[in-house]
Amino acid sequence: MAKAEQEKTERQAWMGLLAKSSPARLAALMDKASDVPDFTWLRVPEAGGVMVRGRMGGTGAPFNLGEMTVTRCALRLESGEVGHAYVQGRDKAHAQRAALVDAMMQTDRASDLRASVLDPLEAEREAQIATRAAKAAATKVDFFTMVRGED
């Protein structure tokens, strides 16, 4: 049970990383990685909208905020593993690549793929977040309240 839970968490992590990755970057990394296996479509790539929800006051009851574009697809490798993708935007080739990575991560090529695709994506993402955080930190402000004059 614990193993299944851990596998689920790992899969959630890579699927999330792929969903947020830049299509050009994923394409470049996969080109460099080893050859892509044959597959059959279970669901051809389809772009659609997902209604994003927020919460009143940030923590209260949900409300509908607006939609975002998402592309999804599902495929099966010749060896039987099923890959799913739900990625931000309308890029069908990007969804296909994400689903291929998801499927291949369930094969014995997982550690290769992690090193050649997922780790670089993750590292670049962390670096981008750190750079923005460093810029934000440079704009951190200390306000002083002045004593009001009485006359």
Binding site: G49, V50, R53, E67, M68, T69, V70, R132, A133, A136
Partner: peptide, 23 residues
């Protein structure tokens, strides 16, 4: 354009408390 998009579903309510803030 939005009206031409099939509705795939809805998200979980976003957690703005965990926002990575620029401001």
């Amino acid at each position: 354009y939005r009206t031409t998009l099939p509705r795939i579903g809805h998200s979980e309510p976003v957690d703005t408390g965990a926002m990575i803030c620029d401001r």
